[in-house]
Amino acid sequence: MSELFLQQIINGLSIGSVYALMAVGYSLVYSIMNFSNFAHGGVIMIGAYIGYFSLTFLKVPFFIAFVLSAFGSGILAVVMEKIVYRPLRKRNAPFLYFIISAMGASIFLENVVIASPIGPTFRSYPTVFSSEPIMLGSVALGRIDLLMFVISAISLMVLVYIIEKTKIGLSIRATSYSIKGSTLMGVNVDKVIFIIFVLGGLLAGLAGMLFGMRYTVYPQIGNITTKSFIAAVFGGLGSLPGAVIGSVLLGLIETMVSGYLSSQYRDLIAFALLILVLVVKPTGLMGKTTEDKA
């Protein structure tokens, strides 16, 4: 195996794992509420800014900044649900209204930041890690890339544990199959929705700060969620394993194309593959399929 290949695998895994952090937020919301929460990008953007100001203004230690941006985004996600989606839910609005409101919320968040003293400028995170890579033989392992991968992998494992092994997770899975069914079991669906927004928001905050560190922070950084949304569709909307697999695959494809062809073709080929998958299997790789016989 060539070194370039190994190098691209490492890069692909690290970028793909952060896509996954964002994509699971889309999938969690989609699995219960059947719409794509396009305001998720705004939550990620705010997370990136919270991390930035925690380090530069509050000058807190690095890990505290992570905790602050995760919690800040978690709270923001819940507040948005309460203000933007809950009134629609109470009126049983069609899902199109949810999507339009989500887009509106996303534009709103972006412009609030631009209009505020923060403004539209690009800001660079202070250097926390040296940019000197860790060398494994002749393969370079970027410190921030490594951090991206480790934090994403741990967060996703915790998420999978919550979904698969806890009572709350069981109620989330049941509600994703049938809201009426789980309501009849005594599940408070408002509470389940609260929890998925908290989980999605926490992960969005982490992803925002990781992207901010890797690149820069700016009001449109949330647009990067287009990629994770694509990844979530690729893997199958509503499926958490699908979101993770789709994200990692997308990350790998992107870095392979950039490494072997040209980064100009990166999006072209990634999106072409997406279309191909959807033509062959419209529900995505692991989309919500009903196993109901009746």
């Binding site: 069981l170 109620s171 899975r173 049941a174 199959y177 009426k180 069914g181 789980s182 009849l184 005594g186």
Partner: peptide, 29 residues
Amino acid sequence: VKSGICQVPEGRIIFANLTVMENLRMGSF
């Protein structure tokens, strides 16, 4: 449900994506 009334709905609405055991666990949510 908490007060002791449960419904077995028309069309059953079992959770097709969960195992039999998980369905029963949902009953005792």
